[in-house]
Amino acid sequence: MTTVSAPVVEPMGLHSLKVVSNASESPDTSTIVLDSPGITFHAGQFMMLYAFGVGEAPISVSGNPHSPGTLVHTIRRVGPVTDALCGLRPGDSLGVRGPYGDSWPAGEQGDDLLIVAGGLGMAPLRPAVFEAMANRSRYRNVSLIYGARTPADLLFKDDLVGWMSTSSIDVAVTVDRATSDWWGHVGLVTNEFSRVDFRPESTTALVCGPEVMMRVVARSLRDLGVPASSTWLSLERNMKCAIGFCGHCQFGSDFLCKDGPVLSYDRLAWRLGVDEL
């Protein structure tokens, strides 16, 4: 398994960055682009975003790792900090620390890459799709399965249309609810396994979404024959320092801010079903 070393970070270094644009993705989710000269990141990493006077939140980078100079974040409004971040306008400033955490693994040369996203889980996986497209010859086949609640909740619609129009990646989009004028599928993401091309024993699977969905997906992949060590999940827990000091993000024996957030299913399996862990 190839691992990529994370860019060197000044642990608590806070940059003040300016917002270049803020666009609505869905009724409750916005994508902000920040002018960030000199900051690089790997797919799967997150930043701590500080809305001045309100507070700080860990937010994954959702942009292209190969487009330096800007940071892209896709944020769902759930409380005070995310509300303030979604409300930022071009020219506004915010504080940024990071990048933190480890990245999605690249998988072995010649493997199939299967990316499974649910809801907002598409945000940390979007950079992985860009990365896979930039290194397309590494894989035999690349597939993206993306599930959302309704068609209106789908994020990155322009990207989806673009990816669907190339033969480099198989894309299957499914929602939980729709009316019969919807062009995609209705059903759980696991229904789509039979509609994309992957060889379970030679597949690296990257999964992000609500934790119950990730559990169901990881178990279904295991039952199909994908080794647990080749299925990678990105987990979320409350975070404060993001550098492994405060213990807020502890998940069993791991601190998700520095040992994660991306971990393989063989390390996680027993912990995923434990109440309140």
Partner: peptide, 16 residues
């Protein structure tokens, strides 16, 4: 089984 998981309404989204 998949219908039961969908009943949980896991994905965040606008109400409705």
């Amino acid at each position: 089984q998949t219908a039961r998981v969908r009943l949980l309404d896991l994905y965040p989204g606008a109400p409705g």
